[in-house]
Design a protein around this nucleic acid. Structure first.
Lengths: 225, 225
DNA sequence: CGGATGCTTCGGCTATGATCGAAGTATGAA
DNA sequence: TTCATACTTCGATCATAGCCGAAGCATCCG
């Protein structure tokens, strides 16, 4: 007769910090592996594995096995919707981690998403690469032959990336913008290069371009027109 | 940097069965006392008091002291919205208490809300009483002089109700309809009368009118025109 | 005033479940 | 085959928090 217990079981799943971290890491619809989610949640892999089992038993997540990896993603947009509603409620009720304004803006401009470039700059870069047909595809991104040459000239060992187990290109939905930016091994390599050339310095999760560094970046990697 | 823990603390509050019951009991926007909520949650008053302290510390509930009672209500519509989103998610993911169709329909037609009549019949009754100016007001309902006489004639000891501490009339938002029905001491007295006259029998939370009982009810209490 | 009602606080019991180390399984690479 | 990686399962530990009995305030009523 009561319907309370029903919502309690679902809410209890969202109520554990590790699981909440896992879910929010997946909120953009990507599928991540167990180890990536463990890192995001700040727990060991065993613990994350247990949480993921519970979440997929409850049909909040869907897991797909690919080789020796197991990718998890949200089971539907309604899960993300609940998460967002909870974030809104947390904000209004003051349970939010106060995040001062300036930092917010810096994060939106350029930040690090795992190990690659995100925010306005990241989205602009991927758009530019696509416009110049160096990268092709929408959901499944791939390097075109000219794109491959472009990054080799840029100083990236593309052959090494292609030998690795990690996908070279991966579209990653941006949290602040609502478009994709470039992840994957190539995205990580580009970020390494950007930082190695002192075009930008990382400050926690946000990325601060120097004036000349930004000019170089736009000129070499992401021309607007 | 992470925003996970934020939603976790709120979600953890919703994740306890007792608290979930309390919140769903308040989902229609009414304010209930500690003891009413304890009954709804199926715990003792002490336990409920502790839960209510947590919920109002987290600004999910607002408590108002009235005499020796303490009334709690949701702190805003966004709380109800989150609860509904969670119910929807619970339904889709199969964590729902299967409730077979027929019972659902019976509940929508006529059911007991705490101790008074709710559902289509309850909403229709209050509309009828208002139209005939036996009850006045929108949010704060009150018996008019003619209304008082009407219920005395009907066989209800209105004077006794007025001496009690409980409000005689109270508007109660209906879960299935989206309009108010009549609660309070008078609402409870009417339901007692309806059942005492064998116009209807209660079956759990739903209320089954007999054919002749329904005719009597409509004729005496809630004429349509 | 004294008794009753409504609620809160305190203390101790208990159960649940989150966590990680260690060992086991499956897949891929050399 | 042998090793390495990715993940799962098991077992033990430990902290959290829900729960209720008992006692303490506060309010109302006669």
């Amino acid at each position: 007769m009561k319907e309370g217990p029903v919502i309690a079981s679902v809410a209890a799943l969202l109520g554990d910090p590790a699981r909440a971290n896992i879910l929010t890491a997946l909120i953009d619809g990507r599928a991540l592996t167990v180890s990536e989610l463990a890192r995001a949640a700040g727990v060991t892999i065993q613990t994350a594995s247990g949480h993921l089992a519970k979440l997929s038993d409850a049909n909040l997540l869907i897991g797909e096995k690919q080789g020796r990896h197991r990718y998890f993603r949200l089971s539907g947009p309604d899960v993300a919707q609940v998460l967002e509603a909870l974030m809104g409620l947390a904000q209004r009720t003051g349970a939010v981690r106060v995040r001062t304004g300036p930092r917010d803006e810096a994060l939106r401009t350029a930040r690090i998403c795992y190990d690659h470039l995100a925010g306005e700059r990241g989205v602009a870069m991927l758009l530019s690469l696509k416009r110049r047909e160096l990268i092709a595809g929408e959901d499944d991104l791939a390097l075109t032959p000219s794109g491959r040459q472009f990054f080799v000239d840029f100083g990236i060992d593309v052959a090494a990336l292609e030998k690795g187990r990690r996908p070279v290109c991966r579209a990653c939905l941006d949290w602040s913008e609502r478009r994709s930016h470039l992840g994957g091994a190539l995205g990580a390599a580009i970020l390494t290069e950007v930082i190695g050339r002192d075009w930008a310095v990382r400050d926690g999760r946000s990325l601060a371009f120097t004036p000349t560094g930004l000019k170089q970046f736009v000129e070499h990697v992401a021309p607007e027109a």
